[in-house]
Structure formats: structure tokens, C-alpha cells
Simulated assay, not measured.
Amino acid sequence: MIEAVKFWNEPNNKSHWDLELDPEWRLYAQMVKSAAQAVKAERPDVLRVLGGISPIDPAFVTRLQALEATADLDAVAVHGFPLDWNLWSIHDWREKIAEIEAVTQLPVWVTEVGVSSFGAEEVQEFGLRRTAELLCGRVDRIHWYSLYDLPRAWEATTRHREAEGSSYYRHFHMGLLREDGTPKRALEQFAQYTPEIGICQWFHFEDHRLDDAVAWLQRLGVRRLRTGLSWADHLRPDAERWFDRMMRRLEGFDLTITFCFTPESKGLRPHHTSPPQDPVEFADFCAAMLRRYA
């Protein structure tokens, strides 16, 4: 049921990787190399993917290749939100893909693309339609972000706040469903693009939306689902019970699993964005998850 794994989420985004500790991505490259080799040894049939990059930056991919981090990878993933955060037009999607293809022989996947409904649900509808026009048939994998709005009581993972010019509030309006589970205008349209377009939906530890999410995904005809298994959560009490429940409920989907988030006790700093003290421990976590769930 696990067809692919990704090593981290947006490693070139300071909201997800501590660039003060690793400004040249040497530690990230070392971690990816170790993890990719461990996954390859455990399950060589599972595809190995570079953590989705945001911004879409060919220089970052070139840097990782120079550090030999991509030697055991099968694809490179990118994330784009041109109607909300990126300083490029939604109509430029194919050009952005070509920028990455120009510097790597690996296939390019789009594992997060989405549009906020903050301004108007009609904008989200347009963004979904235009994204499908530009990316369907152009890349092997597309994952729409996301099924649900982020609950207002939860914190969006970002170090960019309004004071820094960020549209932070848009994080909470990316779903096809509102926080209370009611559908937005784009939801019905989305079913026209499945199963080619999948969903990216993060499930928090003991997420109350899991069962309802599975029902909606099935109703929409979604086959490919991207979600995450958190290394930090793995050290919580009853973590395996929650992981087992989540993965059991997701058995009907072709899963792309993102391995990410450093436990506070394992980082160079006590924060989930920190590089680990020992990259082999992250690799061991990835291999253990493959043994248990693949």
C-alpha cells in the first residue's frame, strides 16, 4: 500500500528545516543519503522521492546532486501555490516543471499544489481547473493540498508571519472541505480529475477527522494519497497504536508517505525542524516504518 516515500517536507523552506543550523544543506544531504539507502535495502520496490521543495528552485536540486543526495532517489518533488504565496503566475506551472527537469534526469512530481478559498471560493475553483489543465499528463504525480481546512485552533507550520509579509491566514483555507466538514464549491469539480489527481492530507496525532476523511476520499474517487509519518510522534506514548490505526484505515489507497519532524531529544536543537544529531537514527525510523507498513 506504500508506493513511495519522501524524505522530509520542504527542506529548502525555513519553516520546515532549520537553515541556521544547516545553511548549505550538508546535513540534510547526509540524512537523505542514509535514509534512501536504508529504504532501498528494506524495500527496493518502494519509490524514493526528494522531499517536496518550496520554493521551486533548480539551484537547490543542483546543490543536492553535488552532495550526492539524489544517488538512490527515483523522483524529485515540488510544491507550488502561485495564487497564494509564490511570486509567479499559475499559468507558469509547466515552465516551473521544466526548470527542474533541466537540471536533473529524475522525474518531477507535484506533491503539493493548492489554492486558498480565503478571498473567494470561485478563486479556488478557477485554480483547481487551471492546475488540472496544466499538470494532468505533464507530470506523473499530482497531489492537491488539501482535503480539509486546517482547524483554526491548530498552528500552521511556518516561521513566516504577517509581520514578515506572509499571508499566514491563507494556511487555514486550503481545503476542499471547511473545518466543520461542509463542502466548498471546488469539491464537486475535484471529482472530475480523480484518480489522476490525488490528495495531500496531513493527519495529526490521533486526528479526529481520519474516518470522515477516508469516507470523503472514497466518495471522490481518490486513489493516490500523500500523508506523513512523524518521527517526533513516534516517540509519543501509544504512537504505534495510532500509526497502526491510521495506516489500517488508509489501506485502500496508493500511499506516498513523508517521513519528517525531528524529535526534540534527537535534534541539534530541541525543535522538529532541526537536523538530527545522528542521521542514521532517522534512517532507522524510515526503515522500521517500511518493515511495519509496506
Rank of each mutant, 00 (worst) to 15 (best):
A239N: 11
Q201M: 05
E251Y: 01
P237Q: 06
F203D: 11
M246G: 01
W242D: 15
A213M: 01
G228S: 15
Q218S: 08
R248Y: 01
T194M: 00
G198F: 06
E251S: 15
R226N: 08
V222G: 11
R226W: 01
C200T: 13
H204P: 00
L235W: 06
R249G: 02
V214H: 06
R219Q: 13
T258Q: 10
L225S: 11
T227P: 06
M247Y: 03
E196R: 14
Q201G: 08
F243A: 13
D238P: 01
I199F: 00
L220N: 09
F205Q: 06
R224H: 15
V214I: 12
E251D: 13
R224A: 12
E240D: 15
Q218P: 00
T256V: 11
V222M: 10
D212G: 11
G221I: 12
Q201N: 11
G221Y: 06
A232Q: 14
R241W: 09
Q192A: 12
T227N: 04
W216K: 09
R241V: 15
E206V: 03
D211F: 09
L210C: 07
R249I: 01
I257Y: 03
R209A: 07
A239M: 08
R248D: 13
D254P: 02
I257D: 08
S230H: 05
F253R: 08
R226G: 13
Q218C: 09
V214L: 09
A239V: 07
V214C: 06
F243R: 12
C200E: 10
H234K: 08
L229Y: 09
R236M: 11
A215D: 14
G228Y: 09
I197M: 15
E206M: 08
Y193A: 04
Q201D: 05
T227V: 10
L250F: 04
A213H: 04
C200I: 01
T258V: 15
G198M: 05
E240C: 01
L220F: 08
D244T: 07
E251T: 14
V214D: 09
D207Q: 13
W242G: 07
R223Y: 02
G228L: 01
R249W: 01
D244K: 07
I257G: 02
I199S: 00
I199H: 02
R219V: 00
R223W: 02
A232S: 14
R245G: 09
C200Q: 10
R226A: 13
D233S: 09
A232G: 01
L229P: 02
Q192R: 15
V222R: 04
L210M: 09
E196P: 00
F243V: 00
G221K: 05
V222I: 08
R241L: 14
F203A: 11
